[in-house]
Amino acid sequence: TIEDAIKKLLKLAQKGQPYTFGDFTVTSEEEAKKLAKWLKKQL
């Protein structure tokens, strides 16, 4: 689910690992949080 993807994304971001989700490449926890907010709006 999208919720699971968001959780995984935040965990990876906390470890400092870049994470690619579709067109987004997230390289920081701050970016992960922005992406998570955006994804929730898409639901």
Rank of each mutant, 00 (worst) to 15 (best):
K8T: 11
K41N: 09
K7T: 05
A36W: 14
L10Q: 02
L39K: 00
A36K: 04
K37M: 06
K34H: 05
K11M: 13
K8M: 13
Y19A: 13
F24C: 14
K11G: 10
L35N: 00
D23I: 15
E31V: 15
I6W: 07
I6Y: 04
E30K: 10
K33V: 13
A13Q: 03
K40F: 11
E30G: 05
I6F: 08
Y19F: 15
K41T: 07
G22Q: 08
T20R: 03
K7C: 10
T27A: 05
G16N: 06
L43N: 03
L35G: 00
E3H: 09
E3I: 14
D4N: 09
Q42L: 12
Q42D: 01
G22D: 08
L10N: 01
I6H: 00
K37C: 08
D23Q: 08
K34Q: 10
W38G: 01
D4W: 12
Q17V: 15
T25C: 06
Q14H: 05
L35D: 00
D4R: 12
L43T: 03
T25Q: 04
A36R: 07
Q42V: 12
E31S: 11
Q14S: 11
A32P: 01
K8R: 05
L10P: 00
L10M: 10
I2L: 08
D23V: 14
K33R: 12
G16C: 15
D4F: 02
L43M: 11
L9G: 00
K41Q: 13
S28G: 05
K33G: 03
Q17I: 15
L39Y: 01
E30W: 09
L9Y: 03
T1R: 10
A5M: 15
E3F: 15
L39P: 00
I2M: 04
I2T: 02
L35F: 05
K34M: 07
Q14W: 14
Q17D: 13
G16Q: 04
Q14F: 15
T1C: 15
Q14T: 11
A32R: 03
V26T: 03
K11Y: 12
K40V: 12
L10K: 02
G22T: 06
L9K: 00
K34C: 15
T25E: 05
L12E: 06
K7E: 09
E31N: 04
L12T: 04
F24S: 02
T25I: 14
E30L: 09
K40I: 13
A5Y: 15
L35E: 00
A36I: 15
T27N: 07
L39V: 02
K40P: 02
Q17S: 10
K8I: 12
A13C: 13
Y19S: 09
I6A: 01
W38D: 01
F21D: 09
A32W: 14
E3W: 14
L12D: 07
K34S: 06
S28K: 02
P18R: 06
E30D: 10
L39F: 03
D4T: 06
F24Q: 01
L35R: 00
K7V: 07
P18I: 12
L9D: 00
F21K: 01
L9I: 06
G16T: 06
A13T: 05
G16D: 13
L10G: 01
T27L: 13
A13N: 02
E31Q: 07
E3R: 12
A13G: 09
V26N: 04
E31K: 03
A5W: 15
F21W: 13
I6E: 00
K40E: 13
K33L: 13
T27F: 13
K34I: 08
T25H: 12
G22S: 03
Q14V: 10
W38N: 01
L39R: 00
V26Y: 02
G22L: 12
A36F: 15
Y19D: 06
V26K: 04
S28I: 13
F21P: 04
Q14L: 13
S28D: 04
T27D: 04
K34Y: 07
K7D: 08
T1Q: 06
G22I: 11
Q42K: 06
D4A: 12
K41D: 12
T25V: 10
S28M: 12
I6S: 00
S28R: 01
K11A: 12
K40D: 10
Q17C: 15
K33Y: 10
A5L: 15
E30R: 05
L39N: 00
L12Y: 09
V26F: 08
T1F: 12
K15L: 13
K37V: 08
Q17G: 14
L9Q: 01
G16M: 13
I6N: 00
L9A: 01
K34N: 11
L39T: 00
D4P: 01
Q42G: 05
P18L: 11
